[in-house]
Design a protein around this nucleic acid. Sequence first.
RNA 1: GGGCGUAUAGCUCAGCUGGUUAGAGCGCGAUCCUGAUAAGAUCGAGGUCGGUGGUUCGAGUCCACCUACGCCCA
Length: 1080
Amino acid sequence: MSFRAVDTRASFVALEDRIGDYWRSNDIKKQALAHGDHAKPFIFFEGPPTANGKPGVHHVEARVSKDIIIRYHRMCGEHVIGARGGWDTHGLPVEIEVEKKLGFAGKPDIERFGIAAFNAECKSSVQTYIGEWERMTDRIAYWIDMEKPYATYDNSYIESLWWILRQFWDRDLLFRDYKVTMHCPRCGTTLSDAEVNQGYEDDVDDPSVWLRFRLDPSGHPLDAALAGAAFLAWTTTPWTLPANVALAVNPDADYVLAECGPDNTREKVILAASLATNVLGEHHTVLATYTGSQLVGAKYTRLFDGVPGPGDKPDLSTGYRVIGDDFVSLDDGTGIVHIAPAYGDLDVGRKHGLPTLFSVDLSGNTMPQFESMGFANMFFKAADPVITKFLKERGDLFKSARVKHTYPFCWRCKTPLLFYAKPSWYIRTTALKDRLVSANQEVHWVPDHIQNGRFGNWLSNNIDWAISRERYWGTPLPIWISDDGKHSECIGSVAELEAKVGRSLSELDLHRPYVDEITWQDPIHGIMRRIPDVADCWFDSGAMPVAQWHYPFENKELFEKYAGQADYISEAIDQTRGWFYTLHAVSTLLFDRPAFKNVICLGHILDGKGEKMSKSRGNIVNPWEIIDEFGTDAVRWYMFASAPPYNPRRFSRELVGDMLRQFTLTLWNTYSFFVTYANLDGWTPAGLLNADGSLTLDVATLTNPLDRWALARLDHLVRTVSSELDSYDIHAPAKAIERFVEELSNWYVRRSRRRFWKTENDSDTQAAYATLYTCLVTLSKLLAPFMPFLAEEMYSNLVLSKAPNAGPSVHMAKWPQSVPSWRDDTLVASIDVVQTLVGLGRAARRTAALKIRQPLPAILVRVPSAVAASMPAFESDIREELNVKAVRWLETGATFIDYRFKPNLRTVGKKYGKLVPALGEALKALSGDHARAIAVAVEQGNSFDLVVDGQTLSISPDEVLVETSSPDGYAVAEENGVLAALDTTLTPELVAEGIAREVVRYIQDARKNAGFAISDRITVAIDGVSGNANLEATIALWHDYIRTETLADQLVLGSSHAGAHIESLELDAVTLTIAITKAE
RNA sequence: GGGCGUAUAGCUCAGCUGGUUAGAGCGCGAUCCUGAUAAGAUCGAGGUCGGUGGUUCGAGUCCACCUACGCCCA
């Protein structure tokens, strides 16, 4: 039975559809997921995508990176644990999406709508995109179990998170504290650092105001000296001014009392000496200089009465004075910093015992108390100009301008953020900071610079993890506090909660609001109620190793024995501070070990112009468009073969298309070539292919060096691809495969073509089939992780059709092993020289303007001595490739060759140092017979003497490089010690042979144009020859050759009969007509 | 402002511990080869290796500073 015919113009998209159908109808994916030796587990963690949007190109990238490594390990016989889908379902992104859909403007709308209904909407919103993700995951052949994914909203998942939090609680790693947080007034929540950092925007236009804080004499030693003066402070947030309670100076810096302004209105101001000219301009006079510490304690007249917090009666007597603190910078502003503890300076406030006053509430609106001043109940940004105007009219504004600076916005809703002191819950990661750092040293990072660079730096600057969110759709924090506020408990399981309330909670949805309804009576402290906060959704995903298995409530053995630590994870670089960190933190805090052993960190994908893809730019590439045009394999290959995926790189339709032409089609044509001829010859892999799909090819049975070369290269490829995948490099192996396919196609197949055409089925043809078959089958396996569809196509046709019991898929085939007997480094090096030689020969022909069809008498060749001995074996290759009658090997020292010498700088540099240039000159000066003699000496491994700069040096062979060239009269080319010189003497016989080849070429073209099959036999009639004795004689002489080459049963001179395919050509100044017909 | 990364031909990228004339592919032009090939070969045009200094006999490579871009942090 023959192989399935391979169409050279196949549609890869259609092929992938067909393979996809095969996988589906035979349950191949399910079998693959179960495949492998359970005693050799390979642990993978799937980073759960947030299913609140369609998957983009970058998602495809990450998923394929994961898939490649998983497939490789599976083929190596390991059983992959953790190849299952996962969904990150909680969090603000989902809530925002739902709020948008329902037209909500903030938390009050949600509360009115009801938390139960709102969370139900969130849950169903997540589910709407899951189908889209499943479709993409299937199309790109990311083989994970999508039928039993974990989801962070499952009760079981949440219960595991509770268990983790309880562990932290018991170890005092979970605590509550006030901290200044970044607060989104629209979303009504504190944002995590990671979230805040996603929302910084540059070039934000804000007010920039300088204000007078007038001295208020209060018994300070400098009261008299500073009488009538004002402290100048600068701010870009006028809305915080009503909350001002102090001015800070740098105690070590110099401050000046200066007089400035127009002559008739000179006024006195105080500011940092180094900034005076900046702020006041040249036209000012310094009256006195003080250190910052001298100013400390001076009081000033407040601009506004700030609003105390609810139920708070702050002691204002400690406020409105100058304080000294090192943090005060002299880089910009006035060196005097306005302090508003509630909005960013809480630590300073605490340190100096300052009151905390407010100007803006948590919804971002100014307090009603400012009604009389005209800026009550305004959004804080809108209040800025009103406040500024008010201060200007009152004379407190020194000057104002606009400034472009960086300011944080809510990453989701784009509302400007507030710095705001709020109570929050924290995980005390700083307590184990040293361990976080040391555990990172156990991780293998690809690329390696992340380890001690970006990730390492992040860890060593670790701050406690703000884990609470005042939101709705998330994992409820399992902390209950008594009404009197004095007692709190952390609940670690549903069972524990049941014990508290004394009833079954098996039907309870652990989400809000249901869990909020669970309360109990504490005998001493009253009713215990849950705090309203939910967890940062990064905690959900960071805890997935534990929670996906509902550990420790289920899967105890699986988790403890195997699945607790991943062998491999992969995501893009933005996850350094995201998932990579939260995984690492949770695992280190909980189990004192890193969560993953190996991680591939991918660079981002840019658009075709190298710009970041973003919705606002409108340059997002839809992965479906490209997959639908070129297929999944093309996209997969492009992503990992075209350029290292660890750096940002471009992605566009055109780039994927280029790659397809270059690599995929070359491979496909090689495959197609094999199948075409194997079918013509009825070749089968009997005796080569074993029943289990493995191959047995004894290199000793191969006599043709081409075959042994192909196997040596193949073995090298197997070793390279395996070792690189072992070290989690997914780019280098793809490059190695590319190179091999190129050589297989353009050297092995091109050199071997005639072996496949032979009509008699001799042992050489058999060997060629066996070799090419072995290469293609092995390639299908090596390629399987990267191009799962194409690999499956090749495997099913080449292997499965002949060994039905070999296993249904290349993806469960055994990974190819190196065959040491195939290795032959000398042969590989020799062929390398032959290839160089052929290239040089072509270059020489071009120089001499002699086309390759014209035979030449000889080529004179010199090669490096290391491979010289093996060269004669390749004489026929060289003769055929270059169309020469003979190859003549030149000895070293042959008078034909001239020699030039250069110092071998690698060896000579350190030894002779400054003498090197003179040595170079001396070597350059060598010529003629002297040079030839030295060349012979070097060839034989002997040193020679050379006078350099007056001293005689003994130069050893490894200290000099020899280059060769030949005199004029030959067409010569030279490179890397290889020299090729063509003898261009043309005899009438050679010219005639050239004509014969010309005729063959035209007949072949005619055959092709006529649409004849490769094996069709034809009759040829050549007209127009008569009268040209030269041509007539030539055709007569080469009659048999022409017939054989063109499969012509008959070759006649004269006019054709009707119905023939006719072409004409110019030859020897005559126009010939060639007519061909299919032979009967 | 700080950290990490990147900067080499029109485009996409190689260039190992410093070493000789800086390479490949795509694209462009010319020629050649071809009954597997949408491929391939040869030649050509195209490079101040981001910039400025420094170390060295010698710097794309090492050092310092600067610039631009990406990501992260503030």
